[in-house]
Write a protein that binds this DNA or RNA. Structure first.
Lengths: 138, 138
DNA sequence: CTCTTTTTGATAATGACTATCATTATTATG
DNA sequence: CATAATAATGATAGTCATTATCAAAAAGAG
């Protein structure tokens, strides 16, 4: 029998990682990796896009950042890590944070019904935001 | 001023479309396009993968089919179109249907808070399914 | 049947993301 | 500090799910 012991990898602090996190935390939008890349390049012009992806993946893995995948082909990232939900406008595509139900009530409800151990959920609302609603009324 | 009137396109019924829908409806799992492609090929060996993607997209656009995008790189499809939620096991990756809250209660709650017009939501639970729970206990 | 429009199959293209790898930066340790 | 060990970087090639293209075929209308 072969036992593979995965040594816990020491994470090193780098300028790039710091700036990536700072750029992401500087907005309350839900930017893509490319948007973050552009922001980081203003401070570190020679940064590689791969470095941005690598760090975002690492940060998301450690829970310091949230990776969001909605319908489209791109991943969105978010610096805010406290529990909350999202709303996406079907008209303009904008992503909003929504402080909806974040308690364990839903979890418990489903856990009881299914017998599964629920750790968390992702809840995304779709519809028309106020601004688009007004524009569409014209 | 140039006005572009998009003529409503007449949809034609084809053998391929019929089989694709039948294959998808034949399972209560949440297959990928490739899985459906394999199923369709048993009946129509010369079908093209592009045809499967095209039809799934069209069917999803008409609401006859549901396209589900969870974390991974692949789209999953589902023939069941009545409202329900999903649970994904973090251990085995299996996708389960969950008849959780499907009423407008959540929608109303969020609509009141935000002022947005909410049409629907997507709710996905994560955790450990019963089978994995038992296996992990050993 | 004949005309028009949509769909198909085959395949090339797209595009987001990841792997690779030589080099550099960071941290641990003597 | 010096040096060794290891992780991160930048540049770029590769992957892979999905989409676009386009000539040929099929479906529906009249």
């Amino acid at each position: 029998m072969i036992v593979i012991i995965k040594k816990r990898q020491m994470l090193k602090h780098t300028k790039q990682k710091e700036v990536i996190l700072r750029v992401l935390r500087s907005t309350n939008s839900h930017p893509t990796a490319l948007w973050i890349y552009d922001g980081v390049r203003r401070e570190l012009p020679h940064v590689s896009l791969a470095t941005v992806y690598r760090n975002l993946r690492q940060l998301a893995g450690r829970g310091e950042v949230l990776e969001l995948q909605f319908g489209g082909p791109l991943s969105h990232f978010e610096g805010r890590t406290d529990k909350h939900n999202h709303f996406i406008c079907d008209s303009c595509g904008h992503i909003f944070d929504v402080d909806g139900p974040v308690d364990g009530e839903l979890n418990d409800q489903i856990a009881q019904k299914t017998g599964f151990k629920i750790s968390h959920y992702r809840l995304v609302f779709y519809g028309i935001c106020r601004e688009c609603e007004l524009a569409l009324r014209l």
